[in-house]
Amino acid sequence: MSTTAKLMLLLVARGVRDSFMGILKLHRLDEDVHDESTSSSSRKDEPLSALARRRSEHLKHTERKHDSSEPRVLQRMLLCCAWNGGLFLLSILVFNGLIIPGLQFFIHLIFGGSSTHNIVWSWVGPMLSWTFSALWVLPLFLLSKLVNSLWFQDIADAAYRRTRGRPQMLPTFGKIIADIIFSLLLQGLFLIQGTLAVFLPITVIGQLISLLHMCLLYSLYAFEYKWFSMGWEVHKRLSYVESNWPYFVGFGLPLAVFTSISSSAVINGCVFSMVFPLLIISGNEAEPIDETFNYPLRLFTPVVIISNAIFQHSVKRTNVHQVAHPSQSASATHRQVRLQER
């Protein structure tokens, strides 16, 4: 038992160490591309013919143009920090830390310490907070979700190409869409499952189980970009996380702690958006675990069962709809045949 506990602690420590590797690898990813291009250009010492020289210069020009148009990892990282930290998070902190106290002090100067001050502020304070949330925080939060998803994918693609080469996608487009939808559904259900763990009778145990869920979920978020590019299907990804859960608990632990410091979900979301790109790079650079842990943790099993049931129900409804409207499906098939004949 002591050997198992020691191995578990070592895997957790390794996961924590690997989660910080993205900071060390960040600047090197962009330098590697420059080093490869300069080394390839200085590699040729033998004399070239005029035609070969022209082809070489054209090839170098094309490669330089491609490298300059391709998004750099560090550039995307800085954009994530500037958008989520500089614009979004800073505006919330300024509003709550400067504007609201300043207006409250100004109203206090006008009405003094009378009861009128408390009545006026009881109306003005909540109205300002609601207006700020409705007109600024909510639209910017929704826009940030869209922008961050694009930037996260950009960072993951650039890091994968520069360290592992061409992605190996799933064989068909239908499998890709089904995998993405199933993964999003499963992750949403797993987040709900982890949130409900807080309401367990023993508070400390509930918080620990909820933290365990968030660590595994953040690790799955970070590694999923690489695994998807490697052609791993969702069930293989989940089985790998469950079989090596101590490592992935340690990998997601720093981000889970950072995003639980504030009581505001919006502020925690901003912190997540600033730190998570580093976890994507760390997951891309992390070496695979050769030995699986002897005691797998099947936390994803309940949500997998629910997700499968939802998918099977949706497939049945689709089949029933096709049987209920055979003329439409027959006409669609007839149109496809006519198009193929043309």
Rank of each mutant, 00 (worst) to 15 (best):
M1A: 13
S2V: 12
K6M: 13
L9S: 10
L10C: 12
L11T: 03
R14A: 15
G15N: 00
G15F: 04
V16N: 02
G22N: 03
K25T: 13
R28M: 06
E36L: 15
E36S: 14
T38Y: 14
S40N: 08
D45Q: 11
P47L: 06
L51P: 00
K60I: 06
K65Y: 08
S68E: 14
V73H: 02
L79H: 03
C81N: 11
C81D: 02
A82Q: 02
W83M: 11
N84D: 04
L87A: 12
F88P: 00
I100Y: 04
P101K: 02
P101Y: 00
G102C: 06
G102K: 05
L109G: 01
T116H: 08
I119D: 14
I119S: 13
S122E: 09
G125K: 11
W130K: 14
W136L: 14
W136I: 13
L138S: 13
L140H: 09
F141H: 09
L142T: 04
L142F: 09
S144P: 02
W151D: 02
W151S: 11
Q153Y: 09
A159N: 06
R166S: 07
P167W: 05
Q168T: 14
F173R: 15
G174H: 04
I176R: 15
I181S: 08
L184P: 02
L185P: 00
L186H: 05
L189D: 04
I192S: 14
Q193V: 00
G194S: 04
V198F: 12
V198M: 11
L200R: 10
P201V: 04
I202P: 00
V204M: 15
S210T: 03
L211D: 03
C215T: 11
S219C: 05
L220H: 11
G231S: 03
K236D: 13
L238Q: 04
Y240E: 13
Y240W: 11
N244W: 05
Y247H: 13
G250M: 06
G250P: 06
G252Q: 05
A256V: 05
F258E: 01
A265Y: 10
N268L: 03
M274S: 05
V275T: 08
P277D: 01
I280G: 02
G283E: 03
E285K: 12
E285C: 10
A286I: 03
F293W: 07
N294A: 15
F300L: 09
T301W: 11
V303E: 06
I305T: 09
I306D: 00
S307Q: 02
H313L: 10
S314C: 12
V315M: 12
V320L: 11
A330G: 04
A330H: 10
T333A: 15
H334T: 12
H334I: 11
R335W: 12
R338W: 06
Q340Y: 14
